[in-house]
Computed example of a mutant assay.
Amino acid sequence: MAWTKKLTQLNDVLSDLVPNKDGITKYVKASGLKPQYIDTSGNAMDVWSNVLSEADKNSKVDELVKSVLDTYPDNQFLKSALFAKEIDFSVAPDIDDTSDWQNVSEETLEVLTMEQSTLLPVNFLAKGIQKSKSVGKVEIKIGSNKYSVGTGFLFKINGIKELFFLTNFHVINDKKYIEKTRIIFDYELDIDGNSMPSRSFKIDPAGPWYCSEIKEYDTTIFRLIDDSNTLGEYGWIELKEVEIFKNDFVNIIQHPKGEMKQISLYHNIVTHTNDRVVQYLTDTLKGSSGSPVFNSDWEVVALHHSGGGNKEEEPALPEGIKSRNEGIFINKIIQFVKENHKN
């Protein structure tokens, strides 16, 4: 099965409409699929993904869409999915179109065969855990049972006393969403695999609000309310100007799809840099926007903001690697903060 953009977006839409996996079975049966052939483990989004895979395999995607349309007859996303033409009905901006993606070169592909050492001191792990404390989930309520999600992190810059929180402009960019937004820390598993007690904070509406649009730095910066004086438990990441080069390694701490905090540590090669962006093969998903991109010394080198599939003119990627991602070079964001804060 070729998992298309249309199926990906259908998965998002169906998961929003039917977020309880117990309610999915009736649509499976109505579309002529056999429930016993579908894996129902995981969350609703996982189950819908399995349902769509089975429907596509049996040429019953349209029947599945029609069965859900019986319940949601006015849903324009479902209606558009019945057309043969693949329609992009994503709510989020297509950031891929704003990026000047660079070819993944043969030089980089050779690095992926492990011609470059990936050995690190064991304290790399402890340092990463420490940095991860400052990374939080951004959750914005946009409907009665619908949320927009992203990632962000607490930071300071030398010479400025203010403690800021940083995420993407395309995650939140309008003050009207401040009251509907929570920043959640410790949304993760402990060493035994149990959920940790998380804590959420609200945005300070009277604090700094620095925004840079998608085509510039895709950045929103603000302060959090800390009435209980507990924000200090999460520390902060000190941002400083750095250098980053092609073939360097980068790691991303993130909340992919709004899930518990995760880290990507495999095939993390930088494929291109310039004075605005850093592009890399490090894994991310929807919801990872606003994550800190770290080098091997746990210095932030970029603010992750977008991703895209391999372009036709690029060399083929190794098996198992399907796309590359992009972040805004952190030096630009540091300059942006300094220019705005002094004003």
Rank of each mutant, 00 (worst) to 15 (best):
T98D: 15
D297R: 12
K131N: 10
K29S: 09
L7F: 14
N274S: 11
F164H: 05
D74M: 11
D94C: 05
F165A: 04
T151S: 12
S99M: 12
D70W: 03
D275S: 15
K133I: 02
G152F: 06
S53V: 10
Y217D: 09
L112M: 15
A206P: 00
R223M: 12
I172A: 06
A92D: 14
G128P: 01
F124M: 05
Y210G: 03
Q262S: 13
N168V: 07
V278A: 09
V28Y: 01
H341P: 00
G152I: 06
W209N: 08
N103W: 00
S41M: 09
G308N: 09
N268W: 07
F124R: 04
A55F: 08
E179P: 06
E241H: 01
S200R: 04
I142D: 09
K137D: 00
I263M: 13
A84W: 11
N20C: 07
P73D: 02
K261V: 08
K26C: 07
K180P: 00
E238H: 01
A84E: 15
G235E: 10
Y217N: 14
L64H: 02
N75Q: 05
K5A: 11
P19K: 04
T151F: 08
V250H: 02
S99F: 12
I191V: 13
L189R: 07
N340A: 12
N145C: 06
P208S: 14
Y27I: 00
K342L: 07
P205E: 11
Q76R: 12
E243Q: 13
V61Q: 07
F164D: 03
E238F: 00
L109P: 02
D248C: 10
Q102W: 04
Y37H: 10
S53D: 12
P318A: 10
P256S: 06
S306A: 15
I253S: 03
S15Q: 07
V111G: 02
E326D: 04
P315R: 12
T167L: 04
K176L: 04
K175W: 08
K26G: 04
C211A: 13
N123I: 09
I191D: 14
H255V: 04
K29Y: 03
K85L: 07
T98S: 15
S90Y: 04
N43C: 07
T151G: 06
K261L: 09
D12E: 11
S105A: 08
W209E: 07
Q335I: 02
S49H: 12
Q116C: 03
E314D: 15
I334Y: 10
N123Y: 13
I321F: 05
M260I: 10
K29G: 01
E54F: 01
Y27V: 00
V18R: 09
V270N: 07
S53N: 13
D74V: 08
F169Y: 15
T108G: 05
N340D: 08
T98K: 15
F153W: 10
L119F: 03
D226M: 08
N194L: 11
N229T: 09
D100F: 02
F294R: 02
I253N: 03
I269S: 14
I87T: 13
K286P: 02
V270E: 08
E233P: 00
S105G: 10
A30G: 03
N229M: 11
A92T: 13
E86D: 15
T181H: 05
E299V: 05
S291P: 00
S296W: 01
W298R: 00
V277H: 05
I87P: 01
G308Y: 01
I142A: 09
A30F: 02
T98I: 14
V300P: 01
H267E: 11
K34D: 14
F77Y: 13
D248K: 09
V28I: 15
